[in-house]
Design a protein around this nucleic acid. Structure first.
Lengths: 174, 174
DNA sequence: CTCGTGTACTTGAATTCTCAACTTCCACCA
DNA sequence: TGGTGGAAGTTGAGAATTCAAGTACACGAG
């Protein structure tokens, strides 16, 4: 009655196309795996590095950016989170000393988030543990073909939900 | 410096096995897709049904359970969340009228979460929109082979993170 | 120059989630 | 029969997230 329907497929546009039994199985596996994995990584990083997985991801993005800095909006887009969420997150990371804010000289509204040396060091310290967790949970369990397939599938899904990644620098429309 | 290393593979157990460039691409696609999808579904359900995706999932599990009821711990395990989180969630769903609690006659510590008629109706009302969102974001974009592959991969990952799903009714060890 | 529209980012309040107790009860053993 | 250890569930405080609104600045049209 919820995901599945006993009735045969219908061409009626008002009648929703329910998930088949097999599609349901796939979808539930997806929900289970993503829930468990997110939880697992959050726990690992909270315990070892004292921050949730998302925050760690922000530091990684900064570490890879030229000059270890990114405009707030760029960082938000890159991490696929809202600017509001990022503002709160950076405030917290700033308090912990991993990130510092800097004014943008060319646009007085703008702010850079900059990875501090302490942030850099802490990444270096905890990256091995994190990579290990990811490997254990995902890559060590999948064949090379499955890894490739996972990449393709996830790219398709992400692309479908991105407003216009291909188009241009178009905004964060919500 | 974070996920990848320029150095060749090492047999040193103290040296972490970094992700290759290709593995990184897969991992980032995974993070992007799951973040965007979770956000998308949360928004859709919050707008239409007034609750986050996890809460909706709880109602679905109850709807499928015999007698539309489940013990708290069973529901928590089934949804892959902690009992604490579930307690808060059910308290909220109870306030909204979709769920009601009932004492377990055979175990005075136990509680059933029961889907109310209002909860049932609201599921029926919003299931089409939700299925549609899932379809649009995932199934309509993937070939049958990709769907099958996704299911297998996600089952493997979930299985790896489950303490002992195969073993028995063993507990929720954290 | 200034008005209006839009961009960049922040803020506060309400909601949700985590973590560590805590309460109550069951089951078993001596 | 009375402990005792564990299981079921809740609670409260703090952290994170969402949503709607707010401030400050940019930029083009007139």
């Amino acid at each position: 009655m919820d995901y599945m329907n006993t009735a045969p497929t219908s061409a009626d546009p008002g009648e929703p196309r329910w998930l088949t039994a097999e599609e349901q199985r796939v979808w539930r596996a997806y929900i289970d795996a993503t829930t468990l994995l997110e939880d697992h990584l959050d726990r690992q990083l909270q315990r070892d590095a004292g921050m949730p997985h998302v925050y760690y991801g922000l530091l990684v993005k900064l570490a890879e950016a030229p000059d270890r800095r990114l405009r707030m909006t760029e960082l938000a887009m890159s991490a696929k989170i809202t600017r509001s969420r990022l503002s709160h997150a950076v405030a917290r990371l700033e308090k912990s000393g991993w990130v510092r804010r800097e004014d943008c000289p060319s646009d007085k509204r703008g702010q850079f988030a900059v990875l501090t040396d302490e942030g850099q060091e802490m990444l270096a310290r905890h990256a091995p543990g994190h990579v290990n967790a990811v490997r254990q949970a995902v890559f060590d369990r999948l064949t090379p073909e499955q890894q490739k397939s996972l990449g393709e599938i996830m790219r398709i899904v992400a692309e479908g939900l991105q407003p216009s990644e291909a188009g241009a620098d178009l905004p964060w429309l919500r």
